[in-house]
Computed example of a mutant assay.
Amino acid sequence: MDNEESLDLVWGAEAIAKVIARTPTQTHYLLRTGKLPAKQVGERWVASRRKLVSFFLEDAA
Rank of each mutant, 00 (worst) to 15 (best):
M1V: 04
M1S: 14
M1F: 04
M1N: 02
D2C: 00
D2T: 01
D2G: 14
N3S: 12
N3K: 09
N3E: 15
N3Y: 02
E4H: 05
E4I: 07
E5W: 06
E5G: 01
E5Y: 06
E5Q: 04
E5I: 00
S6Y: 03
S6P: 00
S6L: 15
L7K: 15
L7C: 07
L7N: 15
D8I: 03
D8V: 01
D8H: 01
D8R: 05
D8F: 01
D8Q: 07
L9G: 02
L9R: 15
V10R: 07
W11Y: 14
W11N: 03
G12T: 01
G12S: 05
A13M: 02
A13P: 01
A13S: 15
E14F: 07
E14A: 10
I16R: 10
I16G: 06
I16S: 05
I16W: 07
A17G: 04
K18T: 00
K18N: 08
K18P: 00
V19N: 10
V19I: 14
I20H: 06
I20F: 09
A21D: 15
A21V: 12
A21E: 14
A21L: 12
R22S: 01
T23V: 03
T23E: 08
T23F: 07
T23C: 03
P24H: 12
P24W: 10
T25I: 03
T25G: 05
Q26Y: 11
T27P: 10
H28V: 09
H28E: 11
Y29F: 14
L30W: 10
L30D: 03
L30G: 02
L31V: 05
L31S: 04
R32M: 07
R32Y: 06
R32L: 07
R32K: 14
T33A: 06
G34F: 11
G34M: 08
G34S: 08
K35M: 08
K35H: 06
K35C: 02
L36A: 04
P37S: 01
P37W: 08
P37T: 02
A38Q: 11
K39N: 13
K39I: 13
K39F: 14
K39T: 11
K39C: 04
Q40V: 05
Q40H: 04
Q40S: 14
Q40F: 03
V41K: 14
V41F: 12
V41M: 09
V41G: 01
G42T: 02
E43A: 13
E43R: 15
E43C: 05
E43V: 12
R44I: 05
R44C: 02
R44L: 11
R44P: 03
W45L: 13
W45A: 01
V46Y: 02
A47S: 03
A47H: 11
A47Y: 07
A47C: 07
A47P: 04
S48V: 04
R49A: 08
R50E: 10
K51Y: 02
K51L: 13
L52Q: 06
V53A: 06
S54K: 13
S54F: 05
S54C: 01
S54A: 12
F55Y: 15
F55A: 00
F55W: 13
F55N: 02
F56G: 00
F56D: 01
L57G: 00
L57A: 11
L57M: 10
E58W: 08
E58Y: 12
E58I: 01
D59R: 13
D59Q: 12
A60K: 10
A61E: 11
A61K: 10
